[in-house]
Structure formats: structure tokens, C-alpha cells
Simulated scan of single mutants.
Amino acid sequence: MLPSSAASSPPAPPPSPWDDVSWAESTSSTVLQHYNSLPKKGKPQGRESTVLAAFLLSTPQQDPRNLTVLSLATGTKCLGAARLNHHGDLVHDAHAEVVARRALLRLIYTEIGRSGASDWLVASGEKWKLRDGYHLHLYITQIPCGVMPVPPSPSELLREQLDSVNGCDDVGFVQRKPGRGDTTLSMSCFDKITRWSVVGIQGALLSHILEPLYLSTITIGQSPTGASDGFSVENNIKKVLDARLSSLSSKLLLPFKLNKPLFYEAPIPPKEFQQTSGDLQPLTCG
């Protein structure tokens, strides 16, 4: 007979289908192959660089590393506060992650409006949802703006230490996107990823007809200059996200939940997605 402590302990969770050293490489190569298949127009030239982001889909019928690119975008810019208007005819935020999500939402509307059945969405009562066994993933060529770096420390890092990171008194503070000149009012990409981890990526309008869609993994390209000592994508960014979500666990109503995606570090992306350094002024692709 098992000891009471062993009998009452919950079973170990099944291993993630993405816990594999080749997952990050497969994700980045799939996105970059798709990007390279697109026309040259609009891509960085010479010393120009940009950020690339893509949403991908994995299915249960095939190798989880055999991914499909659903949407893809590049971009590093957003409008300053002085240029905003209330007519709805300007794109305020054109960072890659945000534009890629916007494209994904257009695809979702198309899938729901199809005359035939969607390959990856299915009707569920009065709403639609992602088919069972299908998962959404995000790839970004660099760390999203707004990530507050966590200093190297043991896993039992005190809350007080986390709260004072990057000059902030509370990890719950929302950060604005960095900008040159006119200050922006757009939330940082990491703040938006945090929001997607609570209410889903589908947005308010689609929530009327679609159950929340959450990311299973986020894969981020390594910096060509290397990370600061003790910093890792898998551990540190996850730690910051977990800290920011911890205060929300008792405030959510169904069907929303706290979703904690797995983080992976991909190989260094091609030169056109690297921020130039040195004496030359970096140029961002329009």
C-alpha cells in the first residue's frame, strides 16, 4: 500500500509536445522560409533592419514541429501622441507583433465566414473555437519591447526584488512603447502579450462569436550581441510574465483564464532582423 503522501500527490503532467531542442529551430526556420518566399518589395535594404513576427498553427495529425504560418508581419514603428486622431483611419501601432495579430484576426473572420468547414476552427454551441489538439504559437525575431529584465537570482526571488526591477515599483505597471521624439501612447508589445495571456488574442469584437484563443508557445530569436549575464529568454521573461499575472488569478470570469505560454530561445535571426551597432546610425525599414 502506498504511503498517504504518495497516494494523495497529483499525477505528473504529461510532457509538452514542444519540449525538444529542435522546437525553436523548427519554428524560426518555418517563419523565415515563409518570409523569404515573399517578394523583395518592402523588405530591409542595405543597413536597414526590422522586426519580424508570425503566428503559427500546430495540428494533432502531424509532427508538432510541422507548423503552418497563419500570419506574418514586420514593423518597428508607431505614431506619436501628437499625430493620433479619432477618425479611425490611422494605424497607431505598427510593431511586428501587433500587425501580425491584426492579420491573424482578418484570417479568423475569413475562416468563420467560409461556406465550407474551417480546417482549424469549429462551431461550439453559439460560438466558434480552436479545434481540439490544435495550438497557436508566436515567433518574434527579438525580445518584445517592454520586457522588464529580471536580475539573475534563485527561483525563490523575493517579490520586493521583482517589484523594483527597471525602476518600477510594481510589475503591474503598463509601459508605453519606446519612441524617438514625440512620445507614444501605445502599450508595449510585452504588455499586449500579457493581456493576450488573460483575455486571449481575439479581441473584444470576436469575443462575441469566438471562445478565447491563447498562445501555447512564444519563441524569441537570440540577440547577436548575446544576452546580459544571467539572463535567459526561457526563465527570465517567463518569470516577469508570471509575476504580472499572479495578481489576476482571483479576478477572472469564465471563459477567461490565466494562460502561461512556454518560452523558447531561437537561433540568431538573419542580419536584416538585427539591430545594427557601432558608429553607424541604425536605420529601421519603413
Rank of each mutant, 00 (worst) to 15 (best):
A6D: 03
P10H: 08
P14F: 00
P14N: 10
S16D: 13
S22F: 08
A24P: 02
T27H: 09
S29R: 06
T30Q: 11
P39I: 07
R47K: 05
R47C: 02
L57H: 04
P60C: 00
Q62K: 10
R65G: 00
T68K: 14
S71I: 08
T74L: 04
G75Q: 01
T76R: 12
C78G: 00
A81S: 15
D89I: 03
H92E: 11
D93N: 15
A94N: 12
A94W: 02
H95P: 11
A96I: 10
V99L: 15
V99H: 06
A103T: 00
L107I: 11
A117L: 03
A117P: 01
K127G: 06
Y134W: 11
I140M: 14
C145H: 10
P149T: 06
V150K: 15
V150E: 04
P151R: 13
Q161W: 07
S164F: 04
V165E: 05
G167R: 14
G167F: 10
G181R: 03
G181T: 02
L185A: 09
S186N: 11
F190R: 09
T194G: 03
S197T: 07
V199K: 04
V199H: 07
G203P: 07
S216W: 08
S216E: 13
G221R: 07
S223C: 12
G226T: 02
D229M: 03
D229Q: 04
G230K: 03
G230S: 06
N235D: 06
K239S: 09
D242Q: 13
R244C: 03
L245R: 10
S250C: 11
L254G: 12
K260H: 00
L262C: 13
A266C: 14
A266K: 13
P267R: 08
I268T: 15
I268P: 06
P269E: 13
Q274K: 08
L283Q: 13
T284A: 08
